[in-house]
Design a protein around this nucleic acid. Sequence first.
DNA 1: CGATATCTTGAGCTGGATCAACATACGTGG
DNA 2: CCACGTATGTTGATCCAGCTCAAGATATCG
Lengths: 228, 228
Amino acid sequence: MSLACETCPVRDRAACSVLDEAGRDELSRIGRHRTLRAGETLFAAGEATDVCATLIDGALKVTRFDAEGHETILALVHPAGFVGELFQPFSDFDVVALTECRLCVFADRDFDAAIAAHPELARALLRRTQEELHASRAMQSLVMAGSGKARVAALLWKFAESASDSPCHPAARFELPLSRGEMADMLGLTIETVSRQLTALEQEGAIRREGKRGIELLDPARLSHLFD
Amino acid sequence: MSLACETCPVRDRAACSVLDEAGRDELSRIGRHRTLRAGETLFAAGEATDVCATLIDGALKVTRFDAEGHETILALVHPAGFVGELFQPFSDFDVVALTECRLCVFADRDFDAAIAAHPELARALLRRTQEELHASRAMQSLVMAGSGKARVAALLWKFAESASDSPCHPAARFELPLSRGEMADMLGLTIETVSRQLTALEQEGAIRREGKRGIELLDPARLSHLFD
DNA sequence: CGATATCTTGAGCTGGATCAACATACGTGG
DNA sequence: CCACGTATGTTGATCCAGCTCAAGATATCG
């Protein structure tokens, strides 16, 4: 079998995990693996969106460039996540690898057929998409209403949560997965402002920095009360 | 039949339009009509989300209040639109009627069963949700990157498009469906800034105002080049 | 006709952007 | 191993778009 689902690290978390043996076999025949180097583009804005994919390993960003060449990061995609606009002919966003990535890629038309054949797959994808919509709206409200410090604090919190094994409990110590510039692009701020807010948070005793990317949460409560 | 789908004004645009006669009959048995007065709340943040709904008539807003009581409008819902988080136990957002509304309401558990029984319904909902996600991300990038004038111009454009019968062509003249305050809440600006940007756009010759809510597009190109 | 809500306009203030300098890490080749 | 170059991050100084506060203007309605 080409896709070797048996050894897939996300086989029980990805959308395809809701399928039975036969369904997964079918998907494995229409899909193919692909790897991306860090910085490589999966879809580009303006191009035809004829494929979709499940991320097996690594991290992707969904971004948009405005007229002046400024990049906005709209979402991050983690392993087991799904990308692709099944129903829109052209993409308005770029999807780019942040790190080296392994993906399971499907042609849109094949995947749409699989959705029709396997209702539970459609339902799983619906669930995923509703969750993404929810996350997008949460981000939108943060960016629209929150101050620079609140945005940085919320992003730190999100990273702390995803670095922790127990969900909804932030890790006390973690490494930032993004550079200052990437954080700025996610938050609609500049590199300088992100840097200054991190120093401010450190001076207030909310966090401690270790090197460029290491963060220790000294006072999670103080951090979380800055947003929400 | 309780829901009288035969006379429903959105029967060929709503998610349920993909169902055959039998499927629609089934839905009509599990759903019920509800009307909301302007300002009435359908869901409130923090409450259990045990129902979902298709909007038949009127307009809804999806909003969030931050700690200081500031409201952010995250999305508008138009007739044939669908609201409801099928898979999340509690809502993080309020859904409130902007105008008097008629809705077709379903219990989440019933609707989920209908999705399982009718794959085409799941697919239709998936499509709708992907489109909403797309719209949410477009809004997010506008708010993160765009100036005040760009945001106001983009909102005018959106209203002009939805006021026009032909899609993708803005109406030359239309009435603003929102107050200045509601526009400000959608754009992450203040009432004063929205008002000032409208005056600026009028002085530049891009638009002409007629009374408080009437807008005439004098120079659509000048307007649209401000964003995107 | 006054009362209340909505909108516009003006005058300053401020948070984050911009511009600029410096610091630190990390190769790569001499 | 060190010298240098590049990428990344920090800090300082200034500027400006949009916020805040305040005053009028324009409905709309009993």
